[in-house]
Design a protein around this nucleic acid. Structure first.
Lengths: 118, 118
DNA sequence: CCGATGTGCAACTATAGAGTTGCGCGACAA
DNA sequence: TTGTCGCGCAACTCTATAGTTGCACATCGG
């Protein structure tokens, strides 16, 4: 594995959200998804930042599980990993559903309290 | 509406991700979802930060469409809005699916190229 | 009317992180 | 072997923002 794989779910979501919050990183992911595989040097040529900046971003994305890097000779090729993003999406969907549930419940209680007010 | 409602989808996702990236804001959303409705002052009593910090966070969350605030006399009550979160989740799911598609396609092309190498 | 409570505005501090440059080292080709 | 190319490490700058405190304004109950 590239980095840690087994980890607390909340912590994983945390790192994924933090990683996706940066516009440059999202752009980086776009380019990477379009090409399938690329090195930091190659990516730096296509984005308006230095190679070192790309390297740091790739490290963050790698730690979040959004990309994985593999060495091929003297270069390191990175690729996108859909699984982590998918997991975060599921987490968000579940959270939204939970909010909906709570809101509906609270509304129900409020209405019941209103009826008792007579 | 509380803030802007009609807006570019990418921009909306951007603000939502930025809003969710902060741990304190996520905690704030949790408390808010649990209570259904709360004021900045009430929330500040339950979280380890000042009321002003809460106010700023609520402003960010409001701009992202994740909460909405309504005035009730001299106090302002905030509530959670599941719709925005749900939209972001859908966006992420679609993106993950797109990555999967691209990866599969690239793999297919690579294998075809291999067969031509004879 | 007056005290108490809740909001809003403003100035300020401090830390995280996005970006940079410079340099040394290992890997490849001629 | 020598030059070139890509990577990794380190030090530094700078901006965004999370957090604070202080005060002024509005609203409610007595």
């Amino acid at each position: 594995m590239t980095t840690q794989e087994g980890r607390d779910a909340a912590e994983a979501v945390d790192s994924i959200l933090a990683a996706l919050a940066d516009p440059t990183r999202r752009q980086l992911l776009n380019v990477l998804a379009a090409q399938g595989e690329a090195t930091a040097t190659t990516l730096a040529e296509q984005l308006p930042v230095s190679r070192q900046a790309i390297v740091k971003h790739l490290a963050v994305l790698d730690a979040a599980g959004l990309v994985s890097g593999g060495r091929a000779g003297r270069e390191v090729r990175y690729a996108v990993r859909p699984a982590a993003l998918d997991a975060a999406a599921q987490w968000m969907t579940a959270l939204a559903a939970d909010w909906d549930r709570r809101l509906a419940n609270i509304k129900r209680i409020a209405e019941a309290a209103d009826r008792e007010q007579d």
